[in-house]
Amino acid sequence: MSASDTDIIQGCLANDIRMQEALYQKYAARMYAVCLRYAGNAEGAQDILQEGFVKVFRNLSKFRADGSFEGWMRRIFVNTAIEHHRRRHPLADPFSEREEQIEEGSWNALDKLALEDLMKMIQSLPEGYRTVFNLYTVEGYSHQEIGEMLGIQEGTSKSQFARARKALLERIKGHV
Protein backbone atom coordinates (compact mmCIF):
# COMPACT_ATOMS: atom_id res chain seq x y z
CA MET A 1 0.00 0.00 0.00
CA SER A 2 1.40 3.35 -0.90
CA ALA A 3 1.88 5.97 1.78
CA SER A 4 -0.57 8.85 2.02
CA ASP A 5 0.45 12.39 1.27
CA THR A 6 0.31 13.19 4.97
CA ASP A 7 2.68 10.34 5.84
CA ILE A 8 5.02 11.32 3.04
CA ILE A 9 5.07 14.96 4.08
CA GLN A 10 5.70 14.10 7.70
CA GLY A 11 8.52 11.77 6.69
CA CYS A 12 10.09 14.39 4.44
CA LEU A 13 9.91 16.97 7.21
CA ALA A 14 11.80 14.51 9.38
CA ASN A 15 14.42 14.35 6.60
CA ASP A 16 13.61 10.72 5.86
CA ILE A 17 15.22 10.01 2.51
CA ARG A 18 12.85 7.10 1.79
CA MET A 19 9.87 9.40 2.12
CA GLN A 20 11.58 12.00 -0.02
CA GLU A 21 11.94 9.40 -2.72
CA ALA A 22 8.33 8.31 -2.22
CA LEU A 23 7.20 11.86 -2.80
CA TYR A 24 9.32 12.11 -5.90
CA GLN A 25 8.11 8.81 -7.32
CA LYS A 26 4.50 9.71 -6.67
CA TYR A 27 4.53 13.08 -8.39
CA ALA A 28 7.52 13.18 -10.71
CA ALA A 29 5.67 12.00 -13.82
CA ARG A 30 2.86 14.50 -13.47
CA MET A 31 5.17 17.39 -12.66
CA TYR A 32 7.52 16.44 -15.48
CA ALA A 33 4.61 16.76 -17.88
CA VAL A 34 4.00 20.27 -16.52
CA CYS A 35 7.68 21.10 -16.99
CA LEU A 36 7.70 19.75 -20.54
CA ARG A 37 4.72 21.88 -21.46
CA TYR A 38 6.54 25.04 -20.36
CA ALA A 39 10.08 24.18 -21.30
CA GLY A 40 9.70 23.18 -24.90
CA ASN A 41 12.39 20.51 -24.68
CA ALA A 42 13.41 17.66 -22.42
CA GLU A 43 16.63 19.23 -21.21
CA GLY A 44 14.95 22.41 -20.02
CA ALA A 45 12.12 20.39 -18.47
CA GLN A 46 14.58 18.31 -16.44
CA ASP A 47 16.24 21.45 -15.11
CA ILE A 48 12.87 22.84 -14.04
CA LEU A 49 11.85 19.52 -12.54
CA GLN A 50 15.00 19.28 -10.45
CA GLU A 51 14.86 22.87 -9.29
CA GLY A 52 11.14 22.59 -8.58
CA PHE A 53 11.57 19.52 -6.41
CA VAL A 54 14.34 21.17 -4.43
CA LYS A 55 11.94 24.04 -3.72
CA VAL A 56 9.18 21.62 -2.80
CA PHE A 57 11.38 19.91 -0.22
CA ARG A 58 12.76 23.18 1.03
CA ASN A 59 9.32 24.66 1.56
CA LEU A 60 7.39 21.62 2.62
CA SER A 61 6.91 23.00 6.11
CA LYS A 62 4.98 25.89 4.55
CA PHE A 63 2.35 23.66 3.05
CA ARG A 64 -0.98 24.05 4.76
CA ALA A 65 -3.03 20.93 4.63
CA ASP A 66 -6.21 22.83 3.85
CA GLY A 67 -5.70 22.52 0.09
CA SER A 68 -4.53 20.06 -2.50
CA PHE A 69 -0.92 19.06 -2.09
CA GLU A 70 -0.63 18.41 -5.78
CA GLY A 71 -2.04 21.87 -6.53
CA TRP A 72 0.52 23.42 -4.19
CA MET A 73 3.32 21.51 -5.88
CA ARG A 74 2.06 22.38 -9.33
CA ARG A 75 2.16 26.07 -8.51
CA ILE A 76 5.79 25.74 -7.46
CA PHE A 77 6.68 24.04 -10.73
CA VAL A 78 4.80 26.58 -12.82
CA ASN A 79 6.53 29.42 -11.01
CA THR A 80 9.89 27.72 -11.44
CA ALA A 81 9.20 27.45 -15.16
CA ILE A 82 8.39 31.16 -15.26
CA GLU A 83 11.63 31.95 -13.41
CA HIS A 84 13.54 29.94 -16.01
CA HIS A 85 11.87 31.93 -18.71
CA ARG A 86 12.83 35.18 -17.02
CA ARG A 87 16.44 34.10 -16.61
CA ARG A 88 16.71 33.62 -20.32
CA HIS A 89 15.15 37.01 -20.95
CA PRO A 90 16.48 39.15 -18.10
CA LEU A 91 16.02 42.50 -19.78
CA ALA A 92 13.91 42.19 -22.87
CA ASP A 93 10.21 41.68 -22.53
CA PRO A 94 9.44 39.00 -25.08
CA PHE A 95 5.76 39.53 -24.46
CA SER A 96 5.76 43.19 -25.32
CA GLU A 97 3.39 43.61 -28.21
CA ARG A 98 0.32 45.55 -29.06
CA GLU A 99 -2.92 43.92 -28.16
CA GLU A 100 -4.65 42.56 -31.19
CA GLN A 101 -7.90 40.84 -31.79
CA ILE A 102 -7.89 37.58 -33.62
CA GLU A 103 -11.15 36.00 -34.55
CA GLU A 104 -12.33 33.07 -32.52
CA GLY A 105 -11.08 29.74 -33.74
CA SER A 106 -12.51 26.40 -32.88
CA TRP A 107 -10.88 24.56 -30.02
CA ASN A 108 -12.75 21.41 -30.85
CA ALA A 109 -10.04 20.32 -33.24
CA LEU A 110 -7.70 19.92 -30.29
CA ASP A 111 -9.89 17.22 -28.80
CA LYS A 112 -9.28 15.08 -31.85
CA LEU A 113 -5.53 15.21 -31.48
CA ALA A 114 -3.53 12.57 -29.72
CA LEU A 115 -2.09 13.91 -26.48
CA GLU A 116 1.43 13.36 -27.70
CA ASP A 117 0.81 15.39 -30.87
CA LEU A 118 -0.86 18.16 -28.91
CA MET A 119 2.08 18.29 -26.55
CA LYS A 120 4.53 18.57 -29.43
CA MET A 121 2.55 21.39 -30.95
CA ILE A 122 2.47 23.29 -27.69
CA GLN A 123 6.19 22.77 -27.25
CA SER A 124 6.82 24.09 -30.75
CA LEU A 125 5.16 27.43 -29.95
CA PRO A 126 7.43 30.44 -29.36
CA GLU A 127 8.30 30.67 -25.68
CA GLY A 128 6.13 33.70 -24.91
CA TYR A 129 3.09 32.21 -26.58
CA ARG A 130 3.65 28.88 -24.91
CA THR A 131 3.92 30.32 -21.42
CA VAL A 132 0.76 32.40 -21.70
CA PHE A 133 -1.12 29.58 -23.39
CA ASN A 134 -0.25 27.13 -20.62
CA LEU A 135 -1.03 29.55 -17.83
CA TYR A 136 -4.38 30.51 -19.31
CA THR A 137 -5.79 27.33 -20.76
CA VAL A 138 -4.32 24.62 -18.59
CA GLU A 139 -3.55 26.25 -15.25
CA GLY A 140 -6.60 28.48 -15.43
CA TYR A 141 -5.06 31.83 -14.50
CA SER A 142 -6.82 34.97 -15.69
CA HIS A 143 -5.07 37.38 -18.03
CA GLN A 144 -4.80 39.84 -15.18
CA GLU A 145 -3.05 37.24 -13.03
CA ILE A 146 -0.79 36.24 -15.89
CA GLY A 147 0.11 39.88 -16.39
CA GLU A 148 1.14 40.12 -12.75
CA MET A 149 3.08 36.88 -12.86
CA LEU A 150 5.03 37.73 -15.97
CA GLY A 151 5.29 41.47 -15.44
CA ILE A 152 3.36 42.32 -18.58
CA GLN A 153 0.14 44.15 -19.37
CA GLU A 154 -3.12 42.27 -19.22
CA GLY A 155 -3.70 43.22 -22.86
CA THR A 156 -0.35 41.78 -23.84
CA SER A 157 -1.29 38.50 -22.22
CA LYS A 158 -4.52 38.46 -24.22
CA SER A 159 -2.65 39.24 -27.38
CA GLN A 160 -0.07 36.53 -26.76
CA PHE A 161 -2.81 34.06 -26.07
CA ALA A 162 -4.67 34.98 -29.27
CA ARG A 163 -1.48 34.53 -31.26
CA ALA A 164 -0.73 31.24 -29.55
CA ARG A 165 -4.19 30.00 -30.36
CA LYS A 166 -3.90 31.09 -33.96
CA ALA A 167 -0.51 29.40 -34.30
CA LEU A 168 -1.83 26.21 -32.74
CA LEU A 169 -4.86 26.06 -35.02
CA GLU A 170 -2.64 26.59 -38.03
CA ARG A 171 -0.42 23.74 -36.93
CA ILE A 172 -3.46 21.53 -36.50
CA LYS A 173 -4.62 22.34 -40.01
CA GLY A 174 -1.22 21.35 -41.30
CA HIS A 175 -1.27 18.20 -39.22
CA VAL A 176 -4.68 16.96 -40.39
Partner: peptide, 29 residues
Amino acid sequence: MEWQKKLYEQEMSPPADLWPSLAKQIQQE
Protein backbone atom coordinates in the same frame (compact mmCIF):
# COMPACT_ATOMS: atom_id res chain seq x y z
CA MET B 1 -12.83 20.81 -22.89
CA GLU B 2 -11.39 17.36 -23.02
CA TRP B 3 -7.94 18.33 -24.27
CA GLN B 4 -7.42 20.73 -21.38
CA LYS B 5 -8.26 18.00 -18.89
CA LYS B 6 -5.91 15.61 -20.64
CA LEU B 7 -3.10 18.13 -20.58
CA TYR B 8 -3.68 18.91 -16.91
CA GLU B 9 -3.60 15.27 -15.92
CA GLN B 10 -0.86 14.20 -18.27
CA GLU B 11 2.05 12.19 -16.90
CA MET B 12 5.45 11.78 -18.48
CA SER B 13 8.21 9.69 -16.96
CA PRO B 14 11.34 11.71 -16.23
CA PRO B 15 14.74 10.10 -16.81
CA ALA B 16 15.46 7.38 -14.30
CA ASP B 17 18.74 8.90 -13.20
CA LEU B 18 17.17 12.15 -12.06
CA TRP B 19 16.24 11.03 -8.56
CA PRO B 20 19.76 10.10 -7.36
CA SER B 21 21.13 13.51 -8.28
CA LEU B 22 18.09 15.23 -6.83
CA ALA B 23 18.41 13.28 -3.58
CA LYS B 24 22.03 14.34 -3.33
CA GLN B 25 21.10 17.96 -3.92
CA ILE B 26 18.38 17.86 -1.28
CA GLN B 27 20.77 16.44 1.29
CA GLN B 28 23.29 19.15 0.42
CA GLU B 29 20.59 21.78 0.88
